[in-house]
């Protein structure tokens, strides 16, 4: 009997041989919570994985016309960013409930190696500001980067004056992006 880290209810995981051999594979979530995470199944847009058909989506065409032309090679996403996921991510990030992130570890690593197996890639995580770090004690993007266990390169920093501009931008972006995405770029 375990307590689900998502909803706090007690649950029993389904017995199987894999749990016997790899006890660390026991899910941290109960079935209800697990089923509320929706994996993105379609290949979607080859550039950003937006789940609309299999051709380059209208967003990406717009981007290619803007000053960001050629910046994004490829975006890969794991789950659909629905209300349940939004709430879950908010609890992980803003409340600083560290263990909630661990749920993504195995799947995230699998996805990474599926798409970026090549050793020419290095992982760069988006940093958080110093104040956020003092509040939170961890960087959620750094966590995801660590999950990949790949070679990392922390080359990005945060400029103070940019904060407000970036905030306005991310709000605008959050409105149009409906998937929980994390950009991994070729180094």
């Amino acid at each position: 009997m375990n307590l689900c880290i998502g909803c706090g209810e007690a649950y029993t995981s389904r017995p199987s041989w894999s749990i016997f051999f790899w006890p660390e594979r026991i899910s941290l979530l109960c079935r209800d919570c697990e089923e509320s995470f929706h994996r993105l199944k379609e290949p979607g847009c080859p550039s950003c994985m937006k789940q609309t058909g299999s051709s380059i989506c209208s967003d990406c065409l717009e981007w290619e016309k803007s000053s960001y032309q050629g910046v994004l090679e490829k975006n890969v996403s794991l789950y659909s960013y629905e209300p349940f996921m939004q709430d879950y991510i908010a609890r992980w990030k803003y409340r600083g409930d560290y263990i909630l992130g661990k749920v993504f570890e195995a799947e995230f690593r699998k996805l990474y190696y599926q798409h970026f197996q090549d050793s020419k890639y290095e992982v760069v995580s988006i940093p958080i500001s110093a104040e956020r770090m003092v509040e939170r004690g961890f960087n959620q993007a750094g966590e995801l980067a660590a999950f990949t266990r790949a070679k990392r390169k922390d080359v990005l920093g945060r400029k103070k004056a940019w904060r407000k501009a970036i905030q306005a931008q991310t709000i605008a972006q959050a409105d149009c992006r409906k998937s929980f995405s994390f950009a991994i770029r070729a180094a």
Partner: peptide, 11 residues
């Protein structure tokens, strides 16, 4: 326990 969990604290 189990309400107390570990965090890899960077502070």
């Amino acid at each position: 326990q189990p309400h107390l969990q570990n965090i890899d604290c960077q502070i």
